Simulated assay, not measured.
Amino acid sequence: MKIGVMGHGPIVEKCLDAISKVSGSQAIAIYNRPRSAKEGEAIAKKYHVEKTYTDFDQFLNDAEIDTVYIALPNSLHYEYALKVLNAGKNAIVEKPFTSTVEETDHLIQVAKEKKKFLFEAITTCHLPNVKALKEYIQEIGELSLVQTNYSQYSSRYDIFKNGETPNIFNPQFSGGAIMDINIYNIHFIVSLFGEPESVSYFPKKAENGIDTAGIAVLQYPNLACSAVGAKDSESSGFAYVQGRNGTLKINSPVNESRELIVTIGKDSKTINLQQSDNHLVYEFESFTKVVNEQDYDTCYKWLGHTRSVVQVVEKARKFAGIVFPADLK
């Protein structure tokens, strides 16, 4: 893949580092708006990216780019992914994929019509330790509960409390805790069990209606799963899958899943199949393999999972009365 990257900041730097470690992928260009040109140039220099753009049309018309990674504010994912697909390029869209299921469905339709690859950049589903956990599900017997927690104090929360509204705490940009951080937990749960029978969400809301923390409950037949996410407080991250015969524990937030502890009866063992210190490497390895092998079936399978997650999050927001502009279109 010859990748053009949109955006700047920590996630873009981590992405560029990951791409540099994946055979068959190369970042060849970075696009930023003119006001962020200096940031884009500095990142390009740091990661040895040859070209920088501040004109989006020029960036999109670069014939050398076959895939575009979109790391823009949440509310812009749909608009720019659509432009990328219509320009005849593959799109990798940073999580959360879109604001609504309707937007997701349209992007999938266009990707299929244009025979282009479309991916959500979500680490959880591609991590070897999560794949290992799935293999042990049957061994822990009849399931009882699933608990997940990813809580990380946002550096922008103080600014928000002082009266400013950064994108991540702004409904206009499809921000909030469930979209930014708890979505990893929801991806984890849905990857294990598919779409739930019912979804509820109990958030802590700010005055502007955005959720700064919250608990989502995904109800399956005879199984309740909780997804806890907060951007206004800190906690150790984890995932527990409890069964009659034992437990499976991810000993970190699921977006990294740094190790898996398998406990069956009195026996316990720790598994770590992840060698890279950059957990984004695994998703870019997956994307590169699928594109190089022209494996549309796997791409569409992943998109089906993404759609399920978008639907769960949309149901959770509606349950809690969290409304985005995209809901009103």
Rank of each mutant, 00 (worst) to 15 (best):
K249P: 03
I250K: 12
I250Y: 04
N251E: 13
S252E: 12
P253E: 09
E256T: 04
E256W: 01
E256Y: 11
S257M: 08
R258I: 05
E259M: 10
L260V: 15
L260M: 14
T263C: 12
I264P: 05
I264G: 13
G265C: 08
K266A: 14
D267C: 07
K269E: 15
K269W: 07
K269H: 11
T270L: 12
I271N: 01
I271Y: 10
N272S: 15
N272D: 14
L273M: 11
L273D: 04
L273H: 10
Q274N: 09
Q274C: 06
Q274R: 07
Q275F: 09
S276Q: 13
S276Y: 01
S276H: 07
V281P: 05
F284C: 00
F284L: 04
F284Y: 14
E285H: 05
S286Y: 13
F287K: 03
T288V: 06
K289R: 04
V290H: 06
V291C: 04
N292Y: 08
N292V: 02
E293S: 10
Q294K: 14
Q294M: 02
D295L: 08
D295C: 03
Y296M: 01
D297T: 04
D297F: 13
T298I: 12
Y300F: 03
K301P: 02
K301W: 02
W302E: 12
G304N: 08
G304F: 05
H305W: 11
H305T: 13
T306Y: 02
R307I: 03
V309L: 08
V310F: 06
V313T: 08
V313N: 13
V313I: 15
E314I: 08
R317G: 05
R317K: 07
K318C: 07
K318S: 15
F319Q: 03
A320K: 02
G321V: 06
G321F: 10
V323W: 00
F324A: 04
F324P: 01
P325V: 09
P325C: 06
D327S: 12
D327C: 04
L328K: 12
